[in-house]
Design a protein around this nucleic acid. Structure first.
Lengths: 166, 166
DNA sequence: CCAATGTAGTTGGTAGTACAAACTAAATCA
DNA sequence: TGATTTAGTTTGTACTACCAACTACATTGG
């Protein structure tokens, strides 16, 4: 829901009985789209999709199988198979057969892929930092704390992921 | 105050000179993905994409041309042409020739499209509200205020959007 | 041990998404 | 009026994502 869309649901607070006002939902939704769009734009500058960027990010400290990658990205393994194939064609990742299980393929970053991941991450980080420029130090700390609490809480309730091994 | 703040930005924060620590970027990025994913999931339950959902949202109180829609969605007009065509095939929107300009096509919601937009919006709102369940009243108010400040500030700096006419 | 079953990954088919370029029809400008 | 611009569609390419079918390998139960 873009700013445009969310802006339509304005009028009072309509604080429903879950205790969360609609302007809270709007603010979070808009913020999320803003941040998401920033990453999308930075990735697109390098002809990358968000999923590809996420994959490279995952691979920065892991060397998973295609299957595990599919779990981490929440995609079908066939989707990941193609994603990896295209990334390999571009020289961003490599496939290697697993020693343990000869059916498995281990995916890892090339130096080029690592460089690209680093650049996009850095630029995106800069964008987000810039986005928060207007906040006081105190508010920055506060929003970090709350955002973290939300994410951790959600992870515990649903995924139980957030730093899973492999 | 400074001591308190410093105490909170503990180990490995790499607080760069823009004053925004990397954990802040991480927290916001993760939160964004969480929220974005919620809308995506709700939309997907009805075989809709996020863009289609956004379009229906826009059409709730407007009857724009294809061109204007492309501006609002930040897409190429050819992309929107197809998007509208598919939505029309599904009975969600209608096209009508403009009276003023016979080249133009006015796009508007059907009742079915309106219903769908309403449902997805409501469910998504519920998801976000649920996401914030664990926060204290105080933190909810605070995060709303800060998120709003960020979004408003960004809109002023870049888009100057957020409720533009038409 | 090996046949039945399960798992990892790829391939092929379908559909949506997005863009650029080429095109048609209508409006505007000179 | 003729030249140019604009609105929208169409066509071609590529990516994304799924499911179903398939191959190759692994595991398990008789």
């Amino acid at each position: 829901m873009t700013s445009k869309v969310a802006a339509e649901r304005r009028q009072g607070d309509a604080d429903s009985d879950d205790g969360v006002a609609s302007d809270t939902v709007d603010a979070l939704a808009q913020l999320s789209f803003l941040v998401h769009g920033m990453l999308e734009r930075r990735a697109a500058e390098r002809d990358m999709s968000i999923v590809l960027t996420r994959m490279l990010g995952i691979l920065r400290d892991r060397r998973p199988t295609v299957n595990r990658l599919a779990e981490l990205l929440d995609l079908d393994k066939s989707s990941v198979s193609g994603l990896v194939a295209r990334a390999e064609r571009r020289g961003l990742v490599t496939r290697a057969p697993s020693a343990d299980d000869r059916r498995s393929v281990l995916v890892s970053l090339t130096d080029e892929g690592r460089g690209l991941a680093k650049e996009v991450t850095a630029e995106f980080g800069g964008d987000v930092a810039d986005l928060l420029r207007g906040l006081s130090q105190r508010d920055t700390v506060t929003v970090t704390r709350i955002a973290n609490a939300i994410v951790v809480d959600a992870a515990q309730r649903h995924d139980v992921d957030l730093a899973a091994g492999d």
